[in-house]
């Protein structure tokens, strides 16, 4: 499963989105799609588990979880650092 698909699965399970995640573009605003602040915390913790990475403090903000594309590129950066 590519990382975009994994991100989508995590959003499906933890994002509490008002819409089906498959109906969203990679660039769609997840907060507009119904993701609450608390749901974005669950998404962050699930991403850490799934990809074995740790989000550093400076990335712990709303904008880091804005869209599937933003999340996937953050995860790519963190996995590269962890490798």
């Amino acid at each position: 499963m590519d990382s975009h698909q994994k991100v989508r699965t995590i959003l499906q399970d933890h994002g509490r989105l008002a819409r089906d995640v498959e109906s969203l573009d990679d660039d769609a605003d997840l907060y507009r799609a119904g993701m609450t602040s608390h749901a974005s915390v669950n998404v962050m913790l699930a991403l850490e588990d799934e990809f074995g990475v740790e989000f550093p403090d400076e990335m712990l903000q709303r904008s880091s979880f804005q869209s599937i594309a933003v999340i996937a590129s953050a995860v790519a950066k963190l996995t590269a650092k962890a490798a």
Partner: peptide
């Protein structure tokens, strides 16, 4: 927790 830092950042923003 760590998620709390995110909530705090969002609250500030």
């Amino acid at each position: 927790g760590k998620g709390g830092k995110m909530l705090a950042a969002s609250q500030r923003q």
